[in-house]
């Protein structure tokens, strides 16, 4: 079979991309290879490690298991974020940096996207709820301690800001 390219329009980080792709491309492949948005990482390729996590219409999903063609018409957010910045994500990024939650950094973009998803649904998560929210994300470096601490820190800071 030759490659029947299909025109697909993707809204990524608020920007519109018109691409022609074969239907068998995953969202991860298109983000990385077509749009050159390489902040979203590829690792296990089967939804276990969480490095490819992006938000689709606000929900965290594994972009390696999602056809790009099916993401058409939906709002996609990656770690690169909108040009204007995402204050919630920025707060999480600083918490991860300051608390030592980042070592090799390969899990980090996925972890941060997952944290955004967690905190928008549950602004004051308990430690157990944080851990539960991370089960789709492997980290081999940190043992998760500093990641949990960073998420607690970000949640606290965002809640304080909300209250102010």
């Amino acid at each position: 079979m030759t490659k029947p390219l299909v025109p697909v329009t993707l809204m990524v980080n608020g920007e519109r991309y018109d691409v022609s792709i074969p239907p068998w491309r995953t969202l991860l492949e298109v983000l990385r290879e077509t749009l050159n948005l390489t902040g979203t990482k590829r690792s296990c390729g089967e939804g276990q490690c969480g490095t490819c996590t992006v938000l689709i219409d606000g929900k965290a999903v594994n972009s390696c298991l999602y056809l790009a063609i099916e993401a058409q018409g939906k709002a996609i957010q990656t770690i690169e974020g909108p040009a204007a910045g995402d204050p919630v994500v920025e707060r999480i990024q600083h918490a991860f940096a300051n608390k030592g939650a980042i070592q090799c950094g390969f899990c980090t973009p996925g972890m941060i996207i997952a944290t955004k998803s967690l905190l928008q649904d549950n602004p004051k998560p308990s430690e157990d709820e944080i851990r539960e929210a991370l089960v789709g994300h492997l980290c081999r470096c940190t043992g998760y301690v500093q990641i949990v601490e960073a998420i607690q820190d970000a949640a606290g800071a965002l809640a304080a800001k909300e209250g102010a």
């Binding site: 939804g47 999903v61 594994n62 539960e132 929210a133 089960v135 789709g136």
Partner: peptide
Amino acid sequence: IGGVELRNV
């Protein structure tokens, strides 16, 4: 079953 990301799809 799975984690947040899997359950979302």
